[in-house]
Design a protein around this nucleic acid. Structure first.
Length: 332
DNA sequence: AAGTACCGCAACCGCCCCACG
DNA sequence: CCGTGGGGCGGTTGCGGTACT
């Protein structure tokens, strides 16, 4: 048996918000706050809306300092790098982009950024001229096994490139048992952890083995899977690999000495302070193999192709990344 | 000008986690 | 310890606008 709905569906308004509803909600929250109870809020505010709907409207549209409109190149980079590192954790990604909402970023990724990465310019409208070719290209990108012609080909991305991906070492089944899973929720939960983790992961996303990087103190670090860093896989689900790195870098205020980050399949992430995002991108190659992008995208979530609409990243197993992420912890 | 196809985005849906009684 | 309700999140849908034939 399913659970009871959060509100009386028959008596709530659905669909687009009117300006009157917006101002009611805004005024109420500015005056009284949310009171920590979204379910009760619409009634108090005199709105015939579901509490969840109010929450969404407030978070995505009405709250102060919301930024709408074009994403900057810097924002593109941050989204790409975080997506490569942690997958579709839009709320975490949004936390790194002031004024942007998870919904915004999700939409932006699904409608534009992903196509940019796949080399399909969003402004290129070719529905009538080249629909088949576009579909073929998308198919080719999304289902590499059906094509051998793409192997080894390069193209220039319209946005700054992702770091080169390399294949991961095999995952041992029993690696899961070595992971202190209690650490992970601790790391993800709460503002300090969330901030610190994301700040660092945004600053330091390294892929592949044998990458060398320099710290601000002038020292050079060789990053190599399984060598310099003690890393542990914490699970694999739906084609996405989650991995953790053990690090002795201890951020202020955080007692844990384990930093668990999630890496998309084919990539990994390391935490290190003093290594700037800009620097990382400067060192990234100017071109990248789209096999590598496919590998990245494919291994993160698997693919579903829902007809001729937007290409959709999803978990074909239905049990995939999200469930395992969720089971590990949440952001707030 | 009308019809069609596509795109972008706001909003909804349903699942999961966690706090609380 | 267990059940329940609320909050949060990612995925999906639907509609209005726009481009194109």
């Amino acid at each position: 048996m399913g659970r009871a709905p959060c509100c009386d569906k028959a008596n709530v308004k659905k669909g687009p918000w009117s300006p009157e509803e917006d101002s009611k909600l805004k005024e109420f929250i500015e005056k009284y706050g949310t009171g920590g109870n979204w379910i009760a809020l619409p009634h108090k505010a005199g709105l015939k809306r579901c509490g969840k709907s109010c929450r969404l409207r407030w978070l995505n549209y009405l709250r102060p300092n919301i930024k709408h409109g074009e994403f900057s190149d810097d924002e593109d980079r941050i989204i790409c790098s975080l997506f490569a590192s942690i997958g579709s954790r839009w709320s975490i990604i949004a936390a790194q982009l002031p004024g942007r909402t998870d919904n915004d970023i999700k939409n932006y990724w699904n409608t534009k950024l992903k196509k940019k990465l796949l080399g399909i310019a969003p402004s290129q409208r070719t529905p009538h001229q080249q629909p088949q070719q576009q579909k073929q290209l998308q198919q080719q990108l999304l289902f590499p096994s059906s094509s051998s012609s793409s192997h080894g080909s390069y193209y220039t991305s319209p946005i700054p490139p992702l770091p080169v991906l390399e294949s991961l070492p095999p995952i041992s089944q029993n690696a899961l048992g070595t992971v202190p899973t209690t650490t992970f929720p601790t790391l993800l939960q709460g503002p300090p952890y969330q901030y610190q983790m994301m700040k660092e992961s945004a600053h330091m996303i390294m892929f592949g083995s044998e990458q060398s990087c320099s710290s601000s103190d002038g020292s050079s670090t060789q990053i190599s899977y399984g060598k310099e860093m003690d890393y542990n896989y914490i699970g694999r689900s739906g084609g996405a690999e989650q991995m953790g790195f053990e690090s002795d870098l201890c951020a202020a205020g955080i007692e844990e000495t384990h930093r668990w980050l999630l890496g998309g399949g084919g990539g990994g992430a390391q935490v290190e302070r003093d290594y700037g995002l800009s620097r990382l991108w400067e060192e990234a190659p100017l071109e990248y193999n789209y096999e590598e992008i496919k590998q990245l995208l494919g291994s993160l979530n698997g693919y579903t192709n829902n007809g001729d609409r937007n290409l959709s990243l999803g978990d074909p197993t239905g049990s995939g990344v999200r469930g395992s992420f969720k089971s590990q912890g949440r952001v707030m």
